[in-house]
Design a protein around this nucleic acid. Sequence first.
DNA 1: CTAATTGCAAATCATTTGCGCAGGG
DNA 2: CCCTGCGCAAATGATTTGCAATTAG
Lengths: 133, 133
Amino acid sequence: MCIERGLKMTGQRRIIARVLSESEDHPDVEELYRRAVALDADVSIATVYRTVRLLEEKGIVARRDFGEGRSRYDPTDRGQHHHLIDVDTGKVIEFEDEAHDALARDIAAKLGFELVDVRLQLFARRPEQKKPK
Amino acid sequence: MCIERGLKMTGQRRIIARVLSESEDHPDVEELYRRAVALDADVSIATVYRTVRLLEEKGIVARRDFGEGRSRYDPTDRGQHHHLIDVDTGKVIEFEDEAHDALARDIAAKLGFELVDVRLQLFARRPEQKKPK
DNA sequence: CTAATTGCAAATCATTTGCGCAGGG
DNA sequence: CCCTGCGCAAATGATTTGCAATTAG
């Protein structure tokens, strides 16, 4: 899936790549490290950082920043998508929206630009359950 | 403009508030500190951090994160707006878009949520001037 | 065999915080 | 006068990096 990109396929890279491709959520490096160690103890957190950076440069994973001070990652093979963050639970929901992407392209064009990438994050809450403060 | 919020109006806060309200761009703390010192030497970077956090909690400034690893700030009296980042120059352009905000509300509603906040960033480039690599 | 990769620990970077002192109300 | 806010320097937390040992191709 990512072997033929000029990277040596080492044991730790294999593990980290697997952890990433199997993840359905948006783990941070600490979490990736935990999962990797659970599969094979021979990984250091430094290698996770290095690998994740490498995969990001190669376009295999996307780095996300939800304003928590650390980065989260997810494989790009899930397709271009955006995020809705439940402000009460912190849960992240992915979604795609054709109409939105088209609108984004239009907005950029109107400003005289050609769109390269869009980052959209919706912070929201479930309406019914009023949080007692 | 922000005095009656239960904050003591000290000299350094006055300076930092002025620097912020006069800024047309999105300075980071380091930059705010530089500008503040230029007006009045009696400010420490720690105070800039403290003040900026305070003003953010009070809703007087907005914290932005353009994925550079540090936060940038701008006064909220400029209104709710989004950002287009020129990927070649790093320049940030602000814009508003009614249609987009409505669409965002719709998307959240469709997912069963009530929108609290939207963060939209367009990464784009000017089409004509091809950057020589 | 040789360059790429790893682990570890030390180094960075942005940001926060403890503490004794100063100043606003 | 009292409590809040300040400067300083040390503490934190995430991420990066130098270096010597290890390994993929």
